[in-house]
Design a protein around this nucleic acid. Sequence first.
DNA 1: ACCTTCGCTGACCATTTGGTCAAACCATTT
DNA 2: AAATGGTTTGACCAAATGGTCAGCGAAGGT
Lengths: 202, 202
Amino acid sequence: MSSVTDSEQKILDAAKKIFEASGYNGARMQQIADEAGISKASLHYYFRSKENLFERIFSETMEEFMKVLSTWEDDTEDWELKLRVFLVEFFKFLRTNSLLFILREINRNPDLLANRPKKKKVGFMNYFERLQEKGILKQVDLQLVYVFMHSLCSYPLINQIIFKRTLKMDQAAFDAFLEHYPQHVADFLILSIKHSNKKTKI
Amino acid sequence: MSSVTDSEQKILDAAKKIFEASGYNGARMQQIADEAGISKASLHYYFRSKENLFERIFSETMEEFMKVLSTWEDDTEDWELKLRVFLVEFFKFLRTNSLLFILREINRNPDLLANRPKKKKVGFMNYFERLQEKGILKQVDLQLVYVFMHSLCSYPLINQIIFKRTLKMDQAAFDAFLEHYPQHVADFLILSIKHSNKKTKI
DNA sequence: ACCTTCGCTGACCATTTGGTCAAACCATTT
DNA sequence: AAATGGTTTGACCAAATGGTCAGCGAAGGT
């Protein structure tokens, strides 16, 4: 009773690749079948429709993102170190997962989010709010820090093609840039938290 | 010899709206025709093919982005003020133009960029490099600052739907957040430039 | 009034594409 | 070896979609 047969897995891998590259509207069932080395009819045998197959891929991808974002549970008080570790891990994850895929599809069809269970609490916010209550952390605007953090981590990867062009870097140079990048983000975020003057909730 | 007829403009407006909302693959010629209040045959009368029409829309959008990004020509030495002004203007522009459209389509078909004339020099880099040569500005890594700036400005808008959800803000709350946002970005960019320790080119 | 040009359209066409189905295939059981 | 049940597929279908074309009507020139 293995939950996923061999063919099923081949299809899922192929579908993920094609959907990420071409989007829901651009992807072709035949293309996915070819990539999986299987007939188109078999696709429909395992997953009744294109919509169905897509939903499966989207959900799994979304799930992985959620998993990475919920690594804020334990209560180390050394938030600087914790932030640095998280950033490195988060960035490594982003480099191997297509965030643009998620954004593109959500904007095409917002229902993709509406039909999902809501996370009760954002791990990041929770963690830092507790530190603030304990008086360990300044009263900075955590929402702002949260937005900054995600923006700095995500956008360079999403916008990779344009950055390479305008900054005249080839792939190797840009990869080198990305290698040290999360460290700089950490420096920046920590600096801005420490130096921010009194802030109230926006 | 008016360059653009009335119908032509109606088509362009409709096409921009539809292409931005649905992407090249998701957009339907009939849909664009309906939006423009015109027959599908007329679309092909003015723009021979879907590809043609799309190329026109994409080029014009790209052009506007380039225009905004090249406001770094004059040589005020008050870079802090200049940066603040630019950020406010740039952010205002981003709020009314679909950056996700550009990113989505470029990633679908990188040739869209390949076939474009390259800008000789990035205004931002040029401006700050000159200030560094004059010794007015510290030797910070300008590429990093450039990436930070774009990331902080662009991603909150691209990722709007998700941020609203995770931060539990409705549209009004998020709009309020965006209102002050570029000021915060300016604060933090200036802070990080001033406090960065010796950096060499990456 | 007639002709020409231009903008515009309904009807139509060829191809693509998601989806179906009966039949073939194959491993396992009896 | 025959029956069984899950897996796979070639052939096919209906709908959607980008694109074409002959022709209609209005505006302007003669």
